[in-house]
Nucleic acid binder design. Structure first.
Lengths: 201, 201
DNA sequence: TTGACAAGTGACCTCTCGTTCACTATAATA
DNA sequence: TATTATAGTGAACGAGAGGTCACTTGTCAA
């Protein structure tokens, strides 16, 4: 109970910061949500800003481990349908994992105030996705599944619309199901346009 | 001078809110930037929240007039190159118009806290762009410039990546030139993939 | 000239914020 | 058992927040 208070503070801070922003959150509410009194927080963090920094450190670290390293690249699918399935698996995960949803919201809120948040937002929302899918499309081109073209351009053309729908999902979680369906529709449209294989593959 | 103080307050509020958020901005700084003292603000707005509401009203109204009405739809280009030029004109405008840049940043920051900001963000970042370009692609299909397909899906596939680059531009305005160049590269890629016309058109 | 009104001022109010600190309770250690 | 470190408490602090108000100034119409 006592030992993990630091972690619980971070979790609640992520929750509140991602809803009302750093400036819009006060530590009295934060600690109260944990059944504590505000001064108790200072046994675990030296300031409110220290919570923010620890949160960002965690987000940066998690991103690097989970999405940033070369060994975590998605596998190259063996068919166009495989690309659709790979995509839907990733989207289902990223849309329903509360921690990742809150991370995106927090980055959207704080990206213009904090330099590190800005950099991480750029990765989360655009460049990281391109880096992730460029080798996927390069591999699919080598396998003859996708027409030969600039794989980075294809990764961009593929991930950016999906990223936009994920954002829409963050805004309107009550419409998650239909938005995810739109992701799948787009994915199938994409393989229809760019694929060189019988789409039953 | 005195007459337009209300407008100047709104302009400065947009500036500050779009950088530090509503909660992260205080009215002493705001009025000081205008050479006023904070109590003077209350001659023009009854509260800080009233500024926020007036700002949102203005944004909603401006969007409806500028992007939301049917008569302001972009013209259907006569060639694939025309689509590229149309796009670049719009992007150059939206990326360099300070007021629109600040509006996007503000919506990104406040979209999870305020219901109206959330709705407007959805339009600005996704649905409005689709609505705008769906008739463009429908018209281009009728002219035989673009392969027949679901025009709304094409509008989505076209505008979402461009929107993502515009966001990147908001995050990194120092790289605006190269990001705009990426918009053009994407636009040309798109017409190459979807076009049915000699791209010299 | 007077009166009325809008715009701006500075002092002041109350509230909440982040933060500090002396203190207590607990549990592990020596 | 005595000691020490850790986690949590509650009162208090200073700063800064949003907001109010009596007052001054400038403008313009009557």
């Amino acid at each position: 109970m006592a030992k993990d208070t630091k972690e619980r503070i971070l979790a609640t801070a992520l929750e509140m910061f991602s809803q009302n922003g750093y400036a819009g959150t006060n530590i009295r509410e934060l600690t109260q949500a944990l059944g504590l009194v505000k001064s108790s927080m200072y046994k675990h963090f030296e300031s409110k800003e220290a919570i923010w920094n620890a949160l960002l450190d965690g987000m940066i670290d998690y991103y690097a481990r989970r999405f940033g390293s070369a060994e975590n690249l998605p596998p190259v699918p063996d068919s166009l349908e495989g690309l659709v399935r790979l995509t839907m698996g990733m989207v289902d995960f990223t849309v329903h994992d509360e921690r990742i949803v809150m991370t995106r919201k927090l980055l959207a809120i704080e990206q213009f105030r904090d330099e590190r948040a800005r950099a991480l937002a750029g990765k989360h929302f655009l460049t990281g996705l391109i880096q992730m899918f460029t080798p996927v499309f390069a591999g699919m081109m080598e396998k003859g599944l996708i027409r030969r073209d600039d794989p980075e351009m294809l990764a961009f053309a593929y991930t950016a619309p999906i990223s936009a729908l994920i954002h829409q999902c963050d805004r309107e979680p009550e419409h998650a199901a239909e938005i995810v369906a739109r992701v799948e529709a787009f994915s199938r449209h994409f393989v229809k346009v760019y694929g060189e294989e019988d789409p039953r593959g």
